Each structure stands twice: as structure tokens, then as C-alpha cells.
Amino acid sequence: MVNLQDPRVLRTRQLIMESFRELLRSRGFESISVKDIAQKATINRATFYTHYEDKYALLEETIEQAFRGMIPEDVANAKEFTGEVCDQLILLTYRYIVDFYKICRMDSKSIAKIVDDKIKHLLQQTIENIFLKGNIHQMEVNHHLKIISAMTGSAIYGAAHCWLKDGEMDRADFLVNVVHSYVMNGIGLHLK
């Protein structure tokens, strides 16, 4: 196991990730091999495998790091799921999807499922963490927070994904308005 606090380890992992991102921009995920990533990062394959199990593990970490990096500090530290927090999550999810699908040439259904599942999970975790920091002390409500978070994250992700697929990329404000009402009304019903 590598020491993730070691500056050399951090530099190597960053180099691997940057090389991987560059390769994703220029070709499809399926055509990228560990050998390609290692060559681009100017490391050997053994070094790659010291840090990552395979290119799928690297993909998952890349997705997570990029998504978490897009979450504004006020959303990450929010103690209540407000309308403003909802709007920011809708926009950041949409922007993330656009970046990944357009910039990284998401032309494979198998990678699309990995990306979709990971983003949904991260969005659900983010929403659940906000709920848990809030003043929700009712046992019944706490028991259902995971389900409410999953539904809320799925609604946001599903709408943003649909918006991208329908080619409405220049109308993110309309997406926010539609999803905001749906999500906030749904949360209001469940957290009473």
C-alpha cells in the first residue's frame, strides 16, 4: 500500500491522472491501455499498478476528484438543503456531465454507466451529508435520509443527463427552474 501523504506519491498520482485525462481528450476510454497511460506519464507499468489496480480504478478516482473539486465550499459546508444549494447542485452536475461527455469523448456505453453510477453516488453522498448536518432530529426522518438523498440525487442527475442528451446545452437556467421546483417540493413533502 502506498503512503498517500508522501509528496512523491502525490506527484506520481497527479502525473498519472493528468496523463489519463489528456488521453481521454484525444481518444476513447476503450482504446487507452495501462501501457499508454504509463508511457504518457513517463513511468513504468509496475509504478502504475503500485498506485491503481487498473484503468477503471483510475477512472473512478478521476471522476470523484473532478466532481468533488467542482462543489463550491458553501455547498460542501451547507447545514441545510436550501433552494440556493439545490440550484448550485443542479448546475454543477450539469456542467460535470457536459465536461465528461463532450470533452472526454464518452462514446462507450460501458464507461458511460461507470461515470453515471459514480456521479449519482457522489451526488447522493453530498446531499445526504447536507441533510445530516441539518437540524433533523426526528428518528423516522433520519431513517429515510438515505432514500430521500438517493431520490433527490437521481432527480437532479436524471434531469441534467436528459438535458444534455436533448441538446439543450445553452438553456441551463431553464433546467435549474424546472428541476428546482420538482426537487424542493419533493423534499418538502418528505421532511415534514
Score class of each variant (00 low, 15 high):
residue 147 I to F: 14
residue 162 C to W: 13
residue 150 A to V: 10
residue 11 R to H: 13
residue 164 L to A: 13
residue 16 I to D: 00
residue 3 N to M: 10
residue 176 V to L: 07
residue 84 E to P: 07
residue 88 Q to M: 08
residue 84 E to C: 08
residue 32 I to D: 01
residue 119 I to H: 02
residue 74 D to F: 13
residue 54 D to W: 04
residue 54 D to G: 01
residue 127 I to D: 00
residue 169 M to W: 10
residue 106 M to H: 01
residue 140 E to F: 13
residue 149 S to W: 01
residue 51 H to C: 01
residue 77 N to E: 11
residue 9 V to I: 05
residue 86 C to V: 03
residue 116 D to T: 05
residue 185 N to Y: 15
residue 33 S to A: 10
residue 45 R to H: 03
residue 2 V to P: 10
residue 168 E to Q: 14
residue 152 T to D: 03
residue 105 R to H: 12
residue 80 E to C: 12
residue 131 F to P: 00
residue 110 S to L: 11
residue 172 A to I: 15
residue 69 G to P: 07
residue 62 T to G: 08
residue 136 I to V: 03
residue 76 A to G: 04
residue 184 M to K: 03
residue 106 M to G: 04
residue 92 L to C: 02
residue 81 F to K: 00
residue 4 L to W: 14
residue 81 F to E: 00
residue 85 V to P: 01
residue 43 I to E: 04
residue 80 E to F: 15
residue 149 S to E: 03
residue 76 A to M: 08
residue 141 V to S: 08
residue 141 V to A: 06
residue 64 E to P: 04
residue 122 L to Q: 02
residue 86 C to S: 02
residue 143 H to I: 14
residue 131 F to E: 00
residue 10 L to R: 15
residue 65 Q to C: 06
residue 5 Q to K: 15
residue 33 S to F: 13
residue 163 W to V: 12
residue 169 M to Y: 08
residue 8 R to K: 15
residue 103 I to W: 11
residue 164 L to V: 10
residue 11 R to M: 12
residue 103 I to L: 12
residue 4 L to A: 02
residue 73 E to S: 10
residue 131 F to K: 00
residue 145 L to P: 00
residue 15 L to E: 07
residue 8 R to I: 13
residue 99 D to V: 13
residue 123 L to Q: 00
residue 135 N to W: 13
residue 126 T to K: 00
residue 62 T to Y: 04
residue 42 T to A: 12
residue 186 G to V: 04
residue 96 Y to Q: 06
residue 64 E to L: 02
residue 21 R to V: 14
residue 85 V to M: 07
residue 104 C to K: 10
residue 110 S to T: 09
residue 124 Q to I: 04
residue 52 Y to K: 07
residue 170 D to A: 09
residue 66 A to H: 08
residue 188 G to N: 04
residue 176 V to I: 06
residue 152 T to E: 05
residue 52 Y to G: 04
residue 76 A to L: 11
residue 99 D to T: 15
residue 163 W to F: 02
residue 175 L to Q: 02
residue 27 R to W: 07
residue 77 N to H: 14
residue 80 E to S: 13
residue 82 T to V: 12
residue 117 D to F: 12
residue 15 L to Q: 06
residue 13 R to H: 04
residue 80 E to T: 13
residue 129 N to D: 06
residue 120 K to I: 12
residue 43 I to K: 07
residue 56 Y to K: 12
residue 63 I to F: 07
residue 28 G to D: 09
residue 69 G to N: 08
residue 120 K to D: 10
residue 186 G to E: 09
residue 179 V to S: 01
residue 28 G to S: 08
residue 187 I to W: 04
residue 45 R to G: 09
residue 128 E to Q: 06
residue 54 D to C: 06
residue 8 R to F: 05
residue 190 H to V: 11
residue 107 D to W: 11
residue 12 T to Q: 05
residue 50 T to S: 15
residue 141 V to I: 14
residue 3 N to F: 05
residue 7 P to I: 11
residue 125 Q to K: 13
residue 17 M to H: 05
